[in-house]
């Protein structure tokens, strides 16, 4: 289904390869298929954007990479998630924990609720370091370095702060620092700017760009907003109702979207100087038609 370049795959083993991923939720005998057989790959140092509206299955896909979804029988994941050649769907609970945080780290949408309110941020960062990098002697220095990296001023002071004492933007920086502190090879950013003010959004995206340059890791950016994809992601996949409807290099997709849904999402990006009489809405009836053909 994906239009991947076969020659690129030969020259370079992808860092993450997802094959035929199916995610189903069960409640009271009803089976709800949230993700319906998707496949994609992320190469080393590459940034992939997964774009779709809420409910399209993009966040669930992100969570399923390190099996953060509820366990069976509530949720059933089939297919393969190959990280560095190892299938994370099939490995043991103990083994998956070595990937969580150390190899694949996450940033979530709501920094305010994603940080534990009763621990200091230093404490929460230290937890990750102590878990995955037991050889680090001076944990405190390591944390301050990480806070410095995400451009938090006075890291020594902020170290002792509790999450509620920070602004939303600061909290998200802490989340990013916490994700980076173990030098993961893949960063999954699930709507990292959605809960933030527009000006802060830009700052956070700049920060992510800066970090990607410095740490040379792969990023999966999950968003509903094509606006932040351009100039950030190398590749885009567009998800709609659990399926990938379009995939390709960012520039190609932005300049020449083929699927009606992609076109509609792109049309939602507000542009400066453009007179829009009304907000763009998506005509689902038409989409259904185009998908069935």
């Amino acid at each position: 289904m994906t239009d991947e370049n076969p020659s690129a795959e030969k020259t370079q083993e992808p860092l993450l390869a997802v094959r035929d991923l199916v995610i189903e939720f069960r409640s009271r005998g009803e089976v709800n298929r949230a993700v319906d057989g998707i496949s994609f790959a992320v190469n080393k140092g590459e940034t992939l954007a997964v774009v779709g509206e809420s409910g399209s299955g993009k966040s669930v896909t992100a969570m399923s990479l390190t099996r953060l979804l509820p366990e069976e029988p509530v949720c059933r994941v089939t297919g393969a998630v190959l990280f560095d050649g190892k299938n994370l769907v099939a490995c043991s609970n103990r083994a998956i924990r070595r990937y969580r945080g150390r190899e694949i780290a996450y940033i979530f949408q709501e920094p305010a609720t994603s940080l534990n309110p009763v621990f200091t941020i230093g404490n929460q960062l230290a937890e990750a370091i102590k878990l995955h990098r037991p050889d680090v002697k001076d944990v405190r220095a390591e944390i301050i370095r990480a806070l410095d990296l995400v451009q938090i001023r006075d890291p020594e002071k902020r170290f002792k702060d509790y999450p509620h004492q920070l602004s939303g933007g600061m909290q998200q920086r802490v989340m990013i620092a916490m994700a980076l502190v173990c030098h993961p090879r893949l960063l999954v950013a699930d709507e990292p700017t959605t809960a933030l003010d527009v000006t802060i959004q830009a700052q956070i995206m700049d920060l992510m760009r800066d970090i990607r340059r410095r740490m040379s890791m792969s990023i999966i950016l999950i968003t509903h907003n094509f606006g932040i994809v351009s100039g950030f992601a190398d590749k885009v996949i567009v998800m709609f109702r659990g399926k990938i409807v379009e995939a390709g290099p960012t520039d190609t997709i932005l300049s020449n979207p083929r699927h009606a849904y992609t076109k509609a999402l792109i049309a939602c990006i507000p542009r400066l100087g453009e007179q829009q009489r009304r907000l763009t809405t998506i005509d689902y009836a038409e989409l259904e038609k185009s998908q069935s053909t």
Binding site: R97, R100, G101, A105, Y106, L115, A128, L131
Partner: peptide, 9 residues
Amino acid sequence: YVTTARAKG
């Protein structure tokens, strides 16, 4: 925050 903690490993 529970998901965050799990995601940290």
